[in-house]
Simulated assay, not measured.
Amino acid sequence: MRKNASAGETGLVYSTDTGRMCPACRQPLAACLCKALAKAVPAGDGTARVTREKQGRGGKTVTVVRGLALDAEALGALGKRLRSACGAGGTAKDGVLEVQGDHADKVLTLLLAEGFKAKRAGG
């Protein structure tokens, strides 16, 4: 055990009444609220930022969409629609959509047509 633990890091880890305790919300694991809250609040500010990137991709150009406040399922479905409209591959992971190739203008118009607040970012 660490000697210099701050006040927020110390607390009940196990109780004979309820079993293991969640370290974040200090509730029994059966009644933990952390996972439900994490799923309910998707990351992103609601403004889709469409950029074109080449860094770290072996010289290949990729169109990247960040900032959408969608859950994983909705993000995957939107990614599929964008990829099929552009006729390219790509992925949706960690709240970021990637479409292979330089399709920034087309992706931007498709996002605006679907009612998302989107803007072009970067060069």
Rank of each mutant, 00 (worst) to 15 (best):
G123R: 14
R83I: 02
E53R: 14
D105P: 03
K93T: 06
A40G: 12
T47Y: 07
T47W: 13
A74V: 02
K35D: 12
P23C: 08
Y14R: 09
G122K: 14
G123F: 08
A92M: 07
C32I: 09
R2I: 05
G19H: 00
E98C: 09
E53Q: 14
M1R: 12
A5Y: 06
R57Y: 12
P28K: 08
V64K: 10
D17Q: 15
P28R: 12
L29I: 08
V41L: 12
L110T: 00
R49N: 07
K60A: 13
K119W: 01
E114D: 14
C25L: 11
M21P: 01
C86A: 15
A104H: 05
A69P: 01
F116V: 05
K60Q: 13
V96A: 04
K3R: 08
R57F: 10
T16S: 14
N4H: 14
C22F: 01
A31Y: 10
V96R: 10
T51N: 11
V64N: 04
D17K: 13
L75S: 01
V107E: 00
A40I: 03
G19R: 04
A121S: 13
D45I: 04
A31C: 05
A7R: 13
R52N: 01
A38R: 15
L68D: 03
G122I: 04
L78Q: 01
K3M: 09
A40S: 12
R2S: 12
V96N: 05
S15D: 12
L29H: 04
A77W: 06
T63M: 00
Y14K: 07
R20W: 05
K35R: 13
A30S: 10
G58Y: 08
A31H: 13
R49F: 07
L29P: 00
G11Q: 09
C25I: 05
H103L: 00
G101Y: 00
K39M: 06
A104Q: 02
A88V: 09
L33F: 00
T51E: 15
A30I: 01
K54R: 15
T91I: 01
A69R: 15
E53P: 00
T51P: 04
V65N: 02
K39P: 00
C86F: 02
K60F: 07
Y14M: 05
K35C: 03
F116W: 03
K35T: 02
P28Q: 07
V64E: 10
R57D: 10
A77H: 13
S15W: 02
V65G: 00
A118V: 04
M1N: 07
A88Q: 11
R66K: 09
K106P: 00
L75I: 06
R57Q: 15
L12S: 07
L33Y: 00
T10W: 10
M21F: 12
V13L: 14
L70H: 07
R81H: 11
D102I: 01
D17F: 04
P23K: 11
L12D: 02
G58M: 08
Q27W: 00
G87F: 12
R52G: 03
K54P: 02
S15L: 08
L82G: 04
M21E: 03
A69Q: 12
A85D: 06
A38H: 07
L112I: 10
S84Q: 15
L110H: 14
V13A: 15
D105N: 10
A69K: 15
G44C: 08
K60C: 05
G56T: 03
G122R: 09
T16L: 11
L29A: 06
A121R: 13
